[in-house]
């Protein structure tokens, strides 16, 4: 249902060109959304995507996350990498950590956040949720969650579990 609503709204958002939306476009949007939903269901039958529930509060939380901590982390990450590009001061390594996330959506969210935040890049995620993270400047060979990505683990838990 979630996929259906999102693809329907996305199609209408993309075809809207200033004026009203003709009826034929709404019909096409319904058709496209149905096709996408059926395709998604069919291809995910074997291993269903485990996602948390969706409610309006989570959408608001997600926007808060996107424009709050995530935007700050992205800016800090870029200044950090810019500094390392100029000075060439690196000490790379791959560390592992298990934040204990169960749903696929939460893992995707955390992995993407890690990749776009200071000095870290997700390399692999194991089946039981262990993250292998390439760290551009290793401070500690067995780091804590706090050292690696700050509050993002809590955010991922809150948003998608």
């Amino acid at each position: 249902m979630f996929i259906f609503v999102v693809s329907f709204l996305m199609y209408l958002l993309l075809v809207w060109s200033g004026g009203g939306i003709p009826l034929i476009e709404i019909l096409i949007a319904l058709g496209v959304a149905s096709v996408v939903t059926v395709a998604f269901r069919t291809w995910n039958r074997e291993r269903a995507v485990r996602s948390g529930r969706l409610d309006p509060k989570r959408v608001v939380d997600f926007l808060h996350y996107l424009f709050g901590p995530f935007a700050v982390g992205l800016a800090k990450a870029n200044i950090d990498v810019a500094k390392r590009v100029i000075t060439g001061e690196i000490r790379p390594g791959i560390v592992k950590i298990n934040p204990g996330l169960r749903t696929d959506i939460a893992r995707t969210l955390l992995a993407d956040s890690i990749t776009l935040t200071p000095g870290t890049l997700t390399v692999d995620v194991d089946d039981d949720g262990t993250f292998f993270i390439h760290w551009i400047y290793v401070e500690d060979e067995d780091p804590s969650e706090e050292q690696l990505y700050g509050s993002f683990g809590d955010w991922a838990r809150r948003l998608a579990e």
Binding site: P92, K96, H134
Partner: peptide, 24 residues
Amino acid sequence: AHALARAAHRSGLMPARAVVDRLE
């Protein structure tokens, strides 16, 4: 980027000058 990093590691490319490699 995540997919490329994973593919690079699975194809046997090790990080240069790495101090630690838990994945290996």
